[in-house]
Design a protein around this nucleic acid. Structure first.
Length: 255
DNA sequence: AACGGTCACAACCGCAAGGGA
DNA sequence: CTCCCTTGCGGTTGTGACCGT
């Protein structure tokens, strides 16, 4: 079936965007909204391909983007989500309001990878670097997390884990109500949301915002007051007790 | 000041998924 | 059911900034 080129390459600009191009794109999207990226460049008077416009808007021009350094909490959250989801940058970005998949991907490759390596952790497997691969494989139980729609709540996705033990023949399948990534379709992120990632910002602890309401990690009731330094602050939150090594998702599959 | 190496990040590319005709 | 178009994703590249020599 042959793919058509995404754009007429001979008549499109490439490389860094100019201020004028940015202004045109912003003005057009403000007037007409997002969508129909293929026809947008022509309509907006831009000599760019639709793909390029989309990228520029999503990664740089969107008004709800949170620019600036990542916080220690965001770091820890990215690490934990990456250990669960792998290189699913868009899913990880969905958990970090104001951050884009591209930004997180770049940040991972430039900062977090090094950070984990300096801690002696393999960034790909989230296991200690000195653990021999074969030994690790022998110990391994493979956990597959599959997401399926819940009939009653169509916007929510339930989670089933299948644990396959090396020595065991039969995989154990169980629902894990505590692991709720709360992936849902929602309206675009609103910029007036309160400062994210701060415990208690919306009256919810870090665990609750990850969908871990009522889990043992929920510290809503332990937080003395909003604004004070919280238990989940700089040292990072022990999401699913992964820091302590209680849970270890070696491989994950999105189905 | 000049140069080379490294880092950070914006942007590009190729592919796959999803959906409409 | 197939074809084709659009969109979105993840990996990779290009380039400017920064730093040490």
């Amino acid at each position: 079936m042959g793919r058509s080129p995404c754009c007429e390459k001979a008549h499109t600009n490439k490389g860094a965007w100019t201020k004028e191009e940015d202004d045109r794109l912003i003005a057009y999207i403000r007037a007409h909204g997002e969508g129909c990226w293929r026809s947008l460049p022509k309509a907006a008077g831009l000599l760019r391909c639709g793909k390029s416009c989309r990228l520029r808007w999503i990664n740089y021009l969107r008004p709800d983007l949170k620019r600036g350094n990542f916080t220690e909490e965001e770091d820890e959250l990215i690490i934990k989500l990456h250990s669960l989801l792998g290189n699913k940058w868009s899913l990880i970005a969905g958990r970090l309001p104001g951050r884009t998949d591209n930004e997180i991907k770049n940040y991972w490759n430039t900062h977090i990878r090094r950070k984990l390596l300096s801690r002696g952790i393999d960034p790909a497997t989230h296991r200690p670097l000195n653990e021999p691969a074969q030994e690790a494989a022998a110990k391994t139980t493979t956990t597959t997390i599959s997401f399926s729609h819940v009939k009653e709540e169509k916007d929510k996705i339930s989670c089933t884990t299948t644990v396959v033990c090396k020595e065991g023949k039969n995989p154990i399948q169980e629902r894990c109500p505590d692991l709720n990534l709360e992936l849902k379709i929602s309206l675009p992120y609103q910029s007036q949301q309160p400062e994210p990632m701060k415990t208690g910002a919306r009256g919810l602890c870090f665990a609750c915002r990850l969908g871990l309401q009522n889990s043992k990690d929920c510290s809503c009731n332990l937080i003395p007051s909003i604004g004070s330094s919280s238990s989940s602050s700089n040292s990072g939150y022990d999401f699913l007790a992964m820091k302590s090594g209680v849970l270890d998702y070696r491989s994950l599959e999105m189905k």
